[in-house]
Design a protein around this nucleic acid. Sequence first.
DNA 1: CGAATAGTTGAGGCTTCTCAAGGTACGTGG
DNA 2: CCACGTACCTTGAGAAGCCTCAACTATTCG
Lengths: 256, 256
Amino acid sequence: MFSPDHANYPNTGRFLAGRLRHEMSEDERAGLETLVSEVKDHKNGDRLIARGDTCNHSTMLIEGFTLRTLEADDRRHGVSFHVPGDFIDLHCFTLKKLDHNIDCVGPVKVGLVPHEAIADVMKDKPHLARLLWFSTLLDAAMHREWIFKLERLTTPKRIAHIFAEIWRRLQMVGMGFDDGFETPLRQSDIADMCGATAIHTNRALSFLREEGIANFQRGEVRIKSRERLEAFAEFSQDYLYGDGDLSLAGDGIKAA
Amino acid sequence: MFSPDHANYPNTGRFLAGRLRHEMSEDERAGLETLVSEVKDHKNGDRLIARGDTCNHSTMLIEGFTLRTLEADDRRHGVSFHVPGDFIDLHCFTLKKLDHNIDCVGPVKVGLVPHEAIADVMKDKPHLARLLWFSTLLDAAMHREWIFKLERLTTPKRIAHIFAEIWRRLQMVGMGFDDGFETPLRQSDIADMCGATAIHTNRALSFLREEGIANFQRGEVRIKSRERLEAFAEFSQDYLYGDGDLSLAGDGIKAA
DNA sequence: CGAATAGTTGAGGCTTCTCAAGGTACGTGG
DNA sequence: CCACGTACCTTGAGAAGCCTCAACTATTCG
């Protein structure tokens, strides 16, 4: 169902894998790969971009895991996360100044894409431009699901929802295992994404462990039954626009 | 600071007012106005679009107020709202099937924009296309602020935050008053946007009234001190990309 | 005027927070 | 190999926020 062109396109081969990558021509895939002008490595805790920075390039996440965060007082809040293949801050091409930070969790490899290169795509390759737009709209759809989740679910269910989302998104880009996944996230990172304290998050994780829903231990997440996890979390993958009810397969974006 | 071209462009004159409208040429303004192929009226409670609908047009909100909602069991949750001038579901041009509903609150007038017309813009008017993209990214930025708000604030502060946002957004498009604003929202709608019960929302509104922060009574919102309201709500208008720290004024989108 | 919608109030219970104290894994230097 | 430091995780207890159930009141509209 997914085909991470990772061998052919080491920097961008995971972009939109499991979503609309099947709509990209070889020409577009190759064109996208050439947008990356520079590859950089970062370490755990690095802040790739800080709120308010003016940027003239955008960032493709090649390896690793990042968080989008907002801060107030001394508390950090997570508003979304990224897995390899995500165009982390494509929106800053258009917004110019970002409203949030991008923080590395664990070691990270990114590809930099100059904004002039994206402007050329806008001008000359409307179909690829539309796919780039699509990827920013996916972000927005995920944000909406998070809002829904925060309005509706208790902390244990929020955590289960995050696990379900990470697992699905990793698998879409050819990562993750049949019985779970690995992540550099610590309990406090999960707390930041749930709007809960680290202490309460710890208790909620114990609960998930005791109930046999998900076993999180220092970044190793083992899940016995995806069905049970997703039911508990009231999770449905539709909003990821992969295989669910809202899937675009066979009905996708026609050349603009 | 804002100039709602409402007289010249009755259907689209509020689009991006107070944000990047000043960057639109007369040509682009006129072109945008002609995108609207049909104007429709709706009444309170109408569902303009339901989750999963396939759409071949997008919707400009001309008059009135709408909510984006997601439902589960018998509970409705609000993930964002729209004021006149908002391109409510521009993203369905690219996503094709929406992940959420659009519900009318009070009487509503909308303009329909066929997707072929938007595709032409993508092909022939890259700068206008980029402004359309920008408007969907504004949505995403507002979503992120909501996530932050839900993770961080108690119900009284969430409500104050919503009031602060509505007020600012109305003023950007030339609506709203110096001492508050009017809205067709009921207490239960506010509850849906806060992830709280209507009962708790009622108590929180009483609290805001007693404290003199905001007086909400059947859609009339009176606010003595914007400063006090925004401080209480930990609200900063930056994320609306109007006048705040992230403002693009004088530094906006160059022709692509 | 009556019905329907919208808003208000009270009491008991669950969820989450705060403050405070321990426990465990893992790397570094002796 | 052990001692120690640091980051991460765990546990307990009391308080605050929010929910549910169950009334009751006010406003709007036919």
